[in-house]
Design a protein around this nucleic acid. Structure first.
Length: 894
RNA sequence: GCUGAAGUGGUGGAAUUGGUAGACACGUUGGACUUAAAAUCCAAUGGAUAGUAAUAUCCGUGCGGGUUCAAGUCCCGCCUUCAGUACCA
């Protein structure tokens, strides 16, 4: 009997599917464990070997927890609204729904082939109206709530105190201004190429996160989520989470809390300018003010002779894209307004300037410039010859630290850290300032000018906005004749005029035609998995109480601030409104690393049709060009014939090489465009899923990124073959009822101990290693005992479930291995030979006995005295006596 | 610039957190079995020096210092790589 992985894997995947082995029950006396993968966007290219890394890890955990007696919830679904399907629709006219459905089928097929223990009865798709009904419902909860600053939580609009004597319109405005989901005309990140607005989190270095297209600022009417009200809670609750420190740090940075002081500077007339500073201690050094070009006070303070220049500057500054602004960092620009303000502490008259290095969106959009102690102000002051006044003692021309206060009148000599509080107090007393906390975090721009997303369930009329009635949800996506924006720049949904206009009780309304961003559906999907077929609620109270929070969440680090911040925000709102019982959704987070591709390049001679092998590259002037890795073997040799046959553009080329044509390799992100994608299906066919699963775990630490390299895969495959041979001798079962030897008992229990602690600490690579050692040891011990080999199957089964099920059945078990119990190790089976090491205790030399058996004092003394290294360190002096201390430490006296 | 992670054989990576550095695997070399190949099994494998040999000695965890009986691990100062972020006052 050979290890025929193909038929074994098919057989058991079918068995698990038909018997619904992994269906989780919402009612159980067992302790619960909720393991969640970040659900994928079903892209057209299917899975590559990088995707399953996290899925395999979470599958091992969930199988392990099941064997440990937990009721495990391990669901999977699809984040199926998204840009690629829509762009494909624009190109081909095919409805994104169809594209998405096809892609999902492909994904599911590939996922199932990996033997993942998902409860598919709970599958969800964010683009399914039965799902987005509740996304819209939650949107309305946000729309119908406001943030009560005193209670520090969200409260229903119905509990809002509305001032009396307002007209209907004023009343609506009063409410609209306080909703957690509100409309605002703001400068948004407009991406022309994508035809939509992007959230701040989706813009990286002035380019769109998806596609890398330029982004410009543009004022537009948008739905916005008041996430800033939650800044403080999002920040402090991070401390309660078992997340990687790097993710917590990036969230902290993104929220960007800074404590400081808002100071108001009196102008010569009765106007005032408020600035925010974290360094009120340097206020005597504030020698000028700077306003952001967008600052509204600008027009009213600028003097006649400066007006022209200011207007010109404003125009150029506002037309700049984010990218252009950033490029100018080293070369600051600015214009003098002609106006002056009074420094409230020094009473000096200081000039007011305008510059785009001050951001309108942060703080008050104006700063007091302290060139001696702030790098940016220093640069600006040098360029425009503004006064630089040192107020903290230091030898440097520019200094941003703390120290002794100077040049500050009666306050000289005070420590700057203390002076901070003193200044704040004085300003507060005079009504010229107050202590403030500022956040970098901005409100979340929630609308997208796209088709393939959740429609926003809102109606517009002259009186304001109105929610679609809850009982009319879901508000389904209308059909449109084209997926492009309308000619007058409205979202694609506006193309359906019949849908766009609606009349209720004789009143005419226009529907909101923008859709929600892709993050909306993924903000709360972990809750829908608890009770996915519920028609009355997004999930029943009982299911939420039982399953929440998610015990383990595995996914990529690329969602550090986007998805993970938004879903924490929504979860907190749902918590405030009483719909969920935990403050945070995800208790433990693990980031799996990326599996990188090994791209192959060949060198084309410049301006010629010839190609050269990588070792000849230096001889010519060449360009690197990509070739598909399927033409390259493990020794980096190119199959020229096949390449020419399948790619006409290489057909005429002359390939120059020494003995074989070698390609140049580069490790890059795995992607279709780099021709370096490895499909897991290929690996499954060649080696089997169990091999793939174990190999991906063996490759290195889960969190680390690493290149895919098939070189080592035979080692893991051989291990499984060896494992098989432990149970079968050609056609016969080797296994018998003989009493296990001490040696094999030790081997087994060592393995149980190591593997279970490795799984709990996510060290899957070392767990696989110790399984390999175990099988090698048992093979050389010629172990046949069922008492050893049966528990070993259970220990291996989370990693390689198919082969274990097969053997489990063949040795006479009738129920799936899934229902067995993970064995415990027994300490008495683990005894090792005595080893003695020198150790330092309180600075004194002692000896440590590792895992000692019962040794006599004489034995220990003998062991130490025969240790040559030890004697050498004592310069040949002989210890007079060795004292054995209870436990594992021995003392000695010279 | 700032923040975070990392740097160990030819390669991927171990090292119970201060205690035999290089587990396990790949690769390489040699051997067994084969007419042969594949498959499988066995042995060797950080470097240097000495020895016929068993073996012995020295050097070795990015670099330079330090603490310690003992440092890949701790401290100080650098270098390099990757990732995130960027005029946030």
């Amino acid at each position: 009997m050979e290890y025929n992985f193909i038929s074994i894997e098919e057989k058991w995947q079918k068995y698990w599917h038909e018997k619904k082995i992994y269906k989780a029950n919402n009612k159980s006396d067992l302790p619960k464990y909720y393991v969640l993968d970040m659900f994928p966007y079903p892209s057209g290219s299917g899975l590559h070997v990088g995707h399953p890394l996290g899925y395999i890890a979470s599958d091992i955990i969930s199988r392990y927890k099941r064997l440990k007696g937990f009721n495990v919830l391990h669901p999977m679904g699809f984040d199926s609204f998204g840009l690629p399907a829509e762009q494909y629709a624009i190109k081909t006219g095919q409805h994104p729904k169809i594209t998405t459905e096809n892609n999902i089928l492909r994904f599911k097929e590939q996922l199932n082939r990996l033997g993942l223990s998902y409860d598919w009865s709970r599958e969800i798709k964010t683009s399914d109206s039965r799902y987005y009904k509740w996304t819209q419902w939650i949107f309305l909860k946000l729309y119908n709530s406001y943030f009560d600053k005193e209670k520090n939580k969200a409260v229903k609009i119905s509990e809002l105190n509305i001032p009396e004597g307002l007209t209907e319109l004023e009343k609506n405005k009063f409410i609209d201004d306080r909703r957690l989901a509100y409309i605002d005309t703001i400068d948004v990140n407009w991406c022309e190429e994508l035809g939509t607005v992007l959230a701040n989190e989706e813009v990286i270095g002035g380019l769109s996160e998806r596609g890398g297209f330029p982004v410009v600022r543009k004022p537009m009417k948008q739905w916005v989520m008041r996430i800033t009200d939650y800044a403080d809670r999002l920040l402090t609750d991070l401390d309660t989470l078992d997340w990687p420190e790097s993710i917590k740090t990036s969230q902290r940075n993104w929220i960007g809390r800074s404590e400081g002081c808002e100071v108001s500077f009196q102008l010569e007339n009765d106007k005032k300018i408020e600035v925010f500073t974290t360094r009120p201690d340097t206020i005597f050094g504030a020698t000028y003010l700077v306003l952001a070009p967008e600052h509204p006070i600008l027009n009213s303070i600028v003097t006649e002779d400066q007006k022209k220049e200011i207007n010109e500057y404003k125009e150029t500054a506002l037309s700049k894209s984010d990218l252009e602004r950033q490029e100018n960092q080293k070369n600051k620009t600015g214009v003098f307004t002609g106006a002056y303000a009074i420094n409230p502490m020094s009473k000096n008259k200081i000039p007011i300037w305008v510059s785009d290095y001050v951001l309108y969106g942060y703080g008050t959009g104006a700063i007091m410039a302290v060139p001696a102690h702030d790098e940016r102000d220093f640069e600006f002051a040098n360029k425009f010859n503004l006064k630089i006044l040192k107020v903290i003692k230091s030898d440097e021309e520019f200094y941003s630290g703390s120290g002794q206060i100077i040049n500050s009148g009666e306050f000289n000599g005070i420590d700057s850290l203390k002076f901070k509080d003193i200044v704040t107090e004085i300003l507060e007393k005079n009504g010229e300032g107050k202590k403030t906390i500022n956040y970098k975090l901005r409100d979340w721009i929630f609308t997208r000018q796209r088709y393939w997303g959740e429609p926003i369930p809102i109606l517009h009329s002259k009186a304001g906005t109105k929610a679609v009635d809850e009982k009319d949800l879901p508000l389904e996506l209308p059909e449109v004749d084209s997926y492009l924006p309308t000619d007058d720049g409205m979202s694609p949904l506006a193309r359906n005029h019949e849908w766009k206009t609606i009349s209720i009780e004789g009143k005419e309304y226009l529907r909101e035609t923008n859709t929600m961003p892709q993050w909306a559906g993924s903000c709360w999907y972990y809750l829908r998995f608890l009770d996915p077929n519920n028609h009355v609620e997004f999930a029943s109270e009982d299911s939420i109480k039982y399953w929440m929070p998610v015990d383990l969440y595995i996914g990529g680090a690329e969602h550090a601030v986007l998805h993970l911040l938004y879903s924490r925000f929504w979860h907190k709102v749902l918590y405030d409104l009483g719909y969920v019982n935990t403050k945070e959704p995800f208790k433990k987070l693990v980031n799996q690393g990326m599996i990188l591709g090994n791209s192959a390049y060949i060198f084309r001679k410049t301006n010629q049709t010839g190609y050269v092998s990588s070792e000849l590259e230096n001889k010519y002037s060449t360009q690197k060009i990509l070739v598909d890795i399927k033409y390259v073997n493990e020794k980096n040799e190119l199959d020229i014939d096949l390449l020419k046959k399948e790619n006409p553009k290489f057909k005429e080329g002359f390939f120059e090489f020494d003995k074989v044509f070698k390609v140049h390799r580069e490790v890059e992100k795995m992607s279709k465009s780099k021709y370096n994608v490895v499909n897991p299906d290929e690996v499954c066919e060649k080696f089997g899923t169990d091999t793939l699963r174990m190999y991906e775990m063996f490759l290195g630490p889960l969190e680390q990124s690493k290149p895919w390299n098939t070189a080592g895969i035979s080692g893991v495959h051989n291990f499984l073959k060896k494992f098989w041979k432990l149970y079968f001798n050609s056609d016969e079962l080797r296994i018998d009822n003989s009493k296990p030897t001490d040696g094999s008992l030790k081997t087994l229990h060592k393995c149980i101990k190591k593997v279970s602690s490795d799984i709990e600490t996510f060290s899957f690579n070392t767990a696989v290693s110790s399984l390999m050692i175990t099988v090698n040891e048992l093979t050389s011990q010629n172990c046949k005992s069922k008492d050893i080999l049966e528990p070993l199957l259970i220990v291996l089964s989370p990693f390689a479930p198919h082969i274990c099920e097969e053997i489990w059945e063949k040795i006479g078990n009738t129920e799936s291995i899934v229902f067995s119990t993970f064995p415990d190790y027994i300490e008495s089976h683990l005894e090792e030979n005595t080893k003695i090491y020198p150790v330092s205790i309180n600075g004194k030399l002692r000896y440590k006995i590792e895992l000692s058996t019962a040794l006599s004092k004489q034995d220990i003394e003998k062991a130490i005295l025969s240790d040559k290294n030890f004697l050498k360190k004592l310069d040949g002096k002989q210890p007079k006596r060795v004292i054995v201390i209870p436990g594992k430490i021995i003392n000695f006296v010279i």
